[in-house]
Structure formats: C-alpha cells, structure tokens
Design a protein around this nucleic acid. Structure first.
Length: 843
RNA sequence: GGGCGCGUAGCUCAGUGGGAGAGCGCUCGCCUCACACGCGAGAGGUCGCUGGUUCGAGCCCAGCCGCGCCCACCA
C-alpha cells in the first residue's frame, strides 16, 4: 500500500513485465481438456507466419481475441486460445534463400535436404519472435501447447486429407493453365494474384490468308506470344468476317497454319474484332482452345524465357526481349498495321511482385464444387455467422463461383506431396512411402493454405480422437482480417465439414483494416507503418488495446493515436481512483454492496447498467462500444460523480464496503480490455487473492438496480451542472461558497449544494435563479454580480424557455403528431411542456 | 463491367424515424486534501447536393457529386 501512496501515475513500463510474468507463470492460460465444446470456449489464433513480426493487424486481432478469451474465462468457462505458427512456404523460403545468397551460395547449390535443414534452423532462431511479442500485448494464448504447421502430427493430418481427397477423386493432376510466378518459380493460386494497371502497346498484326485472298488483322499487347498461336477467332455473328470462317491463316515468322474459328468469347467491338488464339499463354485462349480442341503450344518456359519451341531466333531470350525482336521482325515483313498505347489491368504475383506468366503446367488441383456446397449452406443456415453480416454475401458469392484450386507449389519448404511415381508410370499415393525401389516422390509441396485450412482441428490432434479435440472442437469464434476470408476462412469451413464433420467455428469476426492516419495503407515500404511495440512502449499495452478496440468498426479505420491516449488516460484514471479508494477505506472491511446514501444506491445501479451494456456489446462483437462504454462509466459516473459525492464523507464500514465493492466490480469489468492496470490494482485490494485474470465475474444484478436513485441523483447532477455553469458565466470565484436555496431536490439538496459550493443555511438578497430540469436554485448572495448583466441573462433564459414552450405547443397542436405518433412520445411531450412552464414561472 | 461501403464539429469517428454526440484539438478558469496523462466551464455542425415518403428525416427511398474497397477472362 505504501507504494500506492507514492505513485500518482500508472507506469506501464514498470508494471507490465511484472504482471505478465505472473500470468504466464500461473498456467491459467492452459486448460486441461474436459467438458464439451458447447460448455467450453475456444479460439484458434490465425497462425502468424514464422517469418512474422507483430504488426498493427496482429495487435488488433490479438486485442479482440484476448478480450473475448479473458471475458469468457472470467465467466467461469473453460477457455482455450489455440496458439501456433504457420510455416508460410514462400515467405519463409525466400527469407532463407536471401540469407544463402548473402553467404555466396544458393539453395540449388546446397541441395534440398540441406536447404530444409537450414530453414528449420532459421525457424528455431527467429520463429518465436512473434509469440514473444504477443505476450507484450498481454495475450493469454495457450503458450503451453504451441503448434506449428510442420509438426509431425500436423504433417500427418495434412497428408491424410490429401490422400483421402485423392481417393475420393477430388484431388487430381492435370495439365492446366496456371498463374506462373516467375519470381518464386512456382504456380500460385488465383487468390494470390493481384491486378495492377499498366500501359502496354497494343499491336495490330496482319496474318495473311493461306489462299492469298487477303489477311486478318489481330490486336495484341503480347506480340511475343504469337509464336504460340494456334488459331484466329471471330464472333459467330460478326458479318464482317463471315466469309473468313473456315479459312486458314498463316502465322507470320512461324508459318503455322491457323484455322479461323468462331467463339462467343470474342468481342466484335474490341480492336479489329479478330482474336489471335494462344492456348499456351493466355487463360481465355486456353479455355477457347479446349473448347475447339486446338493445339497447345508453349513458347515461354518456367524461367520466363523463350523455349526452343519459339524457334532459334528467340529461344533463351526473356519474354520482353522476345517481344521487341518479334515486333521488329514483323515490321521488317510489313505485318504491323498499327500500334497504340493501351492501359489495362494485368495480373501480378502478390508474393513476389512479378508479372504473372500464364502457363500450361502439370499441377495438382482440388475440385471445389462438392466441398463448397455444404460450406455455403453452413453460412446460409446461420450455423456459422459472419460479422459484419455484409461479409457473408461475399463469402457465399465466392463459393458459388468457385473454381478448381491449384494446390501444388514448386517450392521445397512445405508439406511435400505424398505421391510417388514408379519406374513404369505407376503412381502411388499414401501417407507412408511405398515399399520397394524405384519410386520417386513428387518434388512439389502443397500450397500453404492447404495446411492452414485444417488449422482449427489439426492443432487439436485430429485425426486422432484426442481429449483436446473432444473438448474444444468446434471452436467458438474466428477473428481475422477480411483479405483472407476466401484464402483461409472459407477453406476451413469446407475442410471442417468434410473431415471432422462439423463447422470449425460458430462465429467469424472480421476486423477492420487499420490504415495509416492519413488514410493510406500501413506499409513498411511506404513508410506508413506504425509499430505496435513502439506504441506499447509509449502508451502501455492497456492503452494500445483500448485504443485499437475503440477504433474498431465494421469498416476500415484510420489509426487513431488519440484513442490510444484515451486508453492510456483511462488506465491512469482507474489507477488513481483505485488509489483514492484504497487509501481511504478501512482495511478490515470486506467488499460488499452496503448502500447508506442515495448516491451509493445510484452507483450500484449504474454499475449494473455498465455491466449489462458491456455484456451486450461483447455478445454482438461491438468492441468499440464496449471499450468506450467502460470509459464513460469510469470517468462520467464513478470518478466525476460518485467519488466526488463521497469527499468529506466519513469512511465508515458501510462506505468502505461499498467503495471496495464498486472498485472490485469495476476491475472485474474492465479487465478483459485493460488487463495490466486492473491486475496491478487487484493486488492491492484487501482480501483479493490470486490473479484477477482467474477471478469469476458476474453479470448485472437486477436487485441492485434502482430507478428511484437514478432519478434523484440525475436531478442532483442536473442541478450541480446548471449552477456550475452559471457560476462560471457570472465570474464567481471557484472557491466561493454562495448562500442559496434549492427547490425540487428534496432530501438531496445538501448533496447538490456541496458539489456546487452552495450554502443552504445562508441568506441574502436574491442574486439569480438558475433553473434545471426538475427544479431551480435561488442564489442569494446579494449583488455579487452585475445586476444588469444578470437581468440580461435571465431575459435570455426566459426567451429560450418561451421558444421551447412554443415549440412543444405547436407540436402538440399538430393533429398528425397527436394522432399518429406513439402514445408515450405524446405524453412525454406534454410532460415536457408542463415542466418548461414551471421553469418559466420560477425564473 | 458487376457488387459493397463511406461522406455528421478543425481532426478521427459514434449516432438507422421523435429536440445533433464522444475523444482529441481550441478558448476561459482552477496546483479543489486520487489523478495537471488532472478538474470545471465554453466556443464550434444549413449531418455531401437535389428531390421524394412521413405528423416528423442525420437516419427510409430515388437521382446526382466526391472517396474507398472487393470481385470479374475484353485481346
């Protein structure tokens, strides 16, 4: 207690490490499995990449999840926050590759086995960083049960899913057009592609007809792909070209004969209305090619360079170099009809930032239609609820239009595909390697999101029927960002329903994306990033948590340093309020509601309202309201009024018990949002045992609700506020006590008088009448103020009241209002009119 | 091209049919025996624009203007 006496500020930097150590040593974050998922509460953390460092998104995400976790834990529920990290194929592999290059070697040089060994070493060294950073936030994840998507058990789960889906015919291998990322030298999925606007040159090229009767002119932004053309297409209804259909064009530079075909895909109004068809290097042409059974020629290889198929003039050059050479050659032959700049959207790799090269490649795919159906139904039926609701439409629409998922990646770091090829074209698919010699394993690994899709159940031990799986699956809530709704969330629902046979979570809470204060994206490269750890250093973890929650919304928000400072201020305010209470109460008293005054009853009643609101806001995932509501209670009711009401009051046992009770309940209420300061204060509450984080918090107690006390104290507050305002305007010295009479407050007049520095016993000439809702104060301090000025103010007040009365009267004179408005509103208007008339009389 | 969302006080945002709110900033006054990261009191909004529905619109509807995001295969 002596330490409390000296410290007038809450010092997060001093307190947080001490508190965190107690939490994480206590084991309260680790539940023993037991009970049913319906009784228990669990959240699976979105596994951060092992390469990751905590960014603002994690900080928000972690604040939301920890608030939910602490809240439910304090409701007495067995609570587990499943923790782990993701191997993050491409990102991690790139990190290590970069390190190797710095050492003057490369992954190719050291070989696959040694490379993977290096990645594991790297992970050992850096992989735990983000977990430690989560602790700084106060996140009570289950640190005693940490998972990694390449743990042995997890790998077996992944392989089992692959093998099962293969056996069920949903996973297959095919030559198909994929998004080839020359940067990572791997195929990537549609979802990892982003469009960027670029300006290319649209080149019009003339292809002569074989019979010498003329030419067709096609337009392209990628002239180099003409080397792989296998047809020319026009729209079936295009009169201009009807006579060409069925004829044959001759591909310049190459000499290949191209059939002229018709396809609805062709837009007659675009370019010349003739489309060169390159099934090997354009996804649309690929589809058209498959429809018309066209040859698929590949002239660009996986290294982004022209292959031997492109011919000796071009082989070995990059696609861009080949483009220039092709255009030059065509020009030399007089085949270029026209060139113009053309701005359009072009796919880029989200991972490497390089332009996607559509290629036909032999890859593994997963058929999605059969999996999508139940996942759509789960959301439609409400078994899974997405917040905000608007996101469920996006989810459903995406699933309804889902396409096969390319799941193989040409990387080394990841789950290697469990397929072996034998000497004689046999294929073996199984979790364990095949017996005998001559088998070679498919070198590719699975898309990282394949393993992420199993996260909520693979982390709990599936496919084994572990106690953890029985106790905590399905989980309750998934908290994540919008950008991985398809990439991750939808796939978890599909896999959860398919494998453990149940939805992976009942609610999905989509967090805001936090933008830089100027509205730009927060990014390291733009220099707009704000490091949550810096913010924690500066304002404390409580401030950051409060701020992020207070900022959060159903849409994207700008980072608000003010909200963080507001949270810091709240922590400090609570700290000082608690000091005040703890340093004044009699230590021997146990906390209990023992109201002796109307304001005791009032604060107890308001506390119930605060609890009820908090519960409602958590239940609806409205974290901003929960945080700001807490702030309003602590500032606007507890500190501004209740503690002030009690100043000068004797601290008898009743008051001490009530004060301690209100303090204790406030700490319990606030703890999920601002855990550090509340835990620190808890250790000073007499009789408080163990950790606050492990205490049981109860909801609103309606027996302590007191409408009478709320009305009476509401009137006192109105009176005090009105008098203070008058004093300020009248220029009365802040400390001066003025003689006055108070009407309308009955037995509560003394309370109001003290707060407004009025002396009800004194007397003097009437100075002013201050009206407030429910009564009036007659100030009797003689000519304290300029009588003319006072008269002017009274006139102004009368004028205001008359206007208000006129307004109410006209409203009540409106037949439409009286006839059609709800009865209680009409009645309220009548009461208001009466009240205003009384106030006018008193003036 | 389709879809979603936003435009409210100087700034960041609450407010979805009955008299415009918060935090920060600003002004004024206070070191009032918890807190100057404080206390008290203020100033400051034709709620993007135009119509409509309604007794009543910041809130519902339509159109327009401005901004953002998502999805989509026009070479």
């Amino acid at each position: 207690m002596s330490t409390l006496q000296e410290r007038t500020r809450f010092e997060p930097a001093e307190v947080e490490p001490r508190i965190a150590e107690r939490w994480f040593a206590s084991g309260l974050h680790h539940p023993e499995p037991g009970g049913t998922p319906a009784e228990n509460y669990s959240i699976a953390v979105p596994p951060p990449n092992v390469t990751g460092v905590l960014h603002m998104g994690h900080a928000l995400n972690g604040s939301v999840q920890d608030t939910l976790i602490r809240y439910h834990r304090m409701k007495g529920v067995r609570t587990k926050w499943i923790l782990g990290t993701d191997h993050a194929g491409i990102a991690t592999q790139k990190q290590v590759e970069r390190a190797l290059i710095a050492e003057g070697t490369s992954r190719e040089e050291i070989g696959r086995e040694a490379f993977i060994q290096r990645v594991w070493e790297w992970r050992e060294e850096y992989g735990g960083t983000i977990i430690e950073q989560y602790k700084r936030l106060g996140a009570t994840c289950d640190y005693d049960d940490e998972r990694f998507t390449l743990d042995d058990d997890y790998v077996r789960a992944v392989l089992k899913v692959f093998v099962d889906l293969y056996d069920q015919g949903l996973i297959y291998r095919d030559h198909y057009m994929v998004n080839w990322d020359p940067g990572s030298r791997s195929a990537i999925s549609d979802l990892e592609v982003e469009d960027r606007e670029v300006t290319d040159t649209l080149v019009h090229i003339a292809y002569p007809l074989e019979d010498g009767s003329g030419e067709v002119v096609v337009a392209t932004v990628r002239p180099e792909t003409m080397l792989a053309d296998t047809a020319v297409a026009v729209h079936p209804d295009d009169e201009r070209y009807r006579h060409l259909v069925g004829k044959t064009a001759v591909l310049p530079l190459v000499g290949r004969h191209l059939p002229i075909i018709t396809d609805d895909y062709v837009k007659p109004e675009f370019g010349t209305g003739c489309l060169k068809i390159t099934p090997g290097h354009d996804p649309n042409d690929f589809d058209i090619g498959r429809r018309h059974d066209l040859d698929e020629v590949s002239v660009i290889g996986e290294d982004g360079r022209m292959t031997s198929e492109a011919g000796p003039d071009y082989a070995g050059f990059t696609a861009l170099e080949a483009r220039e050479k092709v255009v030059a050659a065509l020009e030399a032959e007089g085949r270029i009809r026209h060139q113009e700049p053309y701005t359009h959207e072009v796919p880029y790799s989200h991972r490497s930032g390089e332009r996607i090269e559509p290629l036909i490649s032999l890859q593994w795919f997963m058929a999605m239609d059969e999996l999508a159906g139940p996942a759509i139904e789960a959301v439609r039926s409400g078994r899974v609820t997405i917040h905000p609701e608007s996101q469920s439409r996006r989810y459903i629409e995406w699933l309804e239009n889902i396409r096969p998922w390319c799941i193989s990646r040409q990387l080394w770091w990841g789950h290697q595909i469990p397929v072996w090829y034998g000497d004689e074209e046999q294929t073996y698919v199984g979790i364990d390697p095949p017996q005998g010699a001559g088998w070679e394993r498919d070198p590719d690994v699975l898309d990282t999101w394949f393993s992420s899709a199993l996260w909520p159940f693979a982390t709990l031990g599936w496919p084994k029927a572990t106690p953890e799986l029985r106790a905590f699956y399905p989980t309750d809530v998934l908290v994540t960002a919008r950008d991985i709704l398809f990439l991750w969330v939808a796939r978890m629902v599909m896999m959860g329903l398919r494998f453990p046979g149940d939805i992976p979570f009942t609610d999905v809470y989509i967090t805001s994306v936090i933008q830089a204060p100027d509205g730009r994206r927060m990014s390291k490269s733009l220099g707009t990033g704000i490091d949550p750890l810096d913010e924690i250093e500066a304002h404390g973890a409580d401030g950051v948590r409060f701020g992020l929650l207070a900022m959060s919304s159903s849409q994207d928000v700008r980072y608000s340093a003010e909200k963080v400072r507001q949270g810091q201020a709240l922590a400090n305010k609570l700290f000082n309020a608690a000091r005040y209470v703890l340093l004044n109460v009699s230590a021997a008293t146990d906390p209990a509601p023992r109201p002796a005054t109307v304001h005791d009853r009032w604060i107890l009643s308001r506390l119930q309202e605060a609890k009820a609101q908090f519960d409602a806001n958590i239940a609806t995932f409205d974290f901003a309201k929960a945080a700001l509501g807490l702030y309003d209670f602590v500032y606007g009711e507890l500190c501004d009024w209740y503690l002030e009401f009690n100043k000068g009051r004797e601290y008898d046992d009743d008051l001490s018990a009530t004060m301690l009770y209100v303090l204790r309940e406030t700490l319990l209420l606030a703890h999920p949002i601002i855990p550090f300061v509340t835990e620190e204060l808890w250790s000073h509450v007499p009789g408080a045992e163990d950790l606050l984080a492990g205490q049981r918090a109860t909801g609103a107690d309606d027996a302590l609700r007191d409408p009478d006390a709320e009305a009476r104290v509401g009137a006192v507050i109105a009176a005090v506020t009105a008098v203070r305002s008058w004093r300020e305007e009248a220029g009365v010295k802040p400390g001066a006590v003025l003689a006055a009479r108070l009407d309308g407050l009955d037995g509560d007049a003394e309370l109001a008088a003290r707060m407004a520095r009025l002396d009800l016993g004194g007397d003097g000439d009437l100075t002013a009448v201050v009206t407030f809702s429910g009564g009036a104060a007659e100030i009797r301090a003689g000519t304290l103020v300029d009588p003319a000025e006072e008269q002017r103010k009274r006139d102004a007040e009368r004028e205001r009241l008359r206007n208000e009365i006129a307004r109410a009267e006209s409203k009540l004179a409106n037949e439409g209002f009286v006839a059609k408005a709800p009865e209680h509103l009409v009645a309220a208007e009548r009461e208001k009119l009466e009240r205003l008339r009384r106030e006018l009389e008193q003036q």
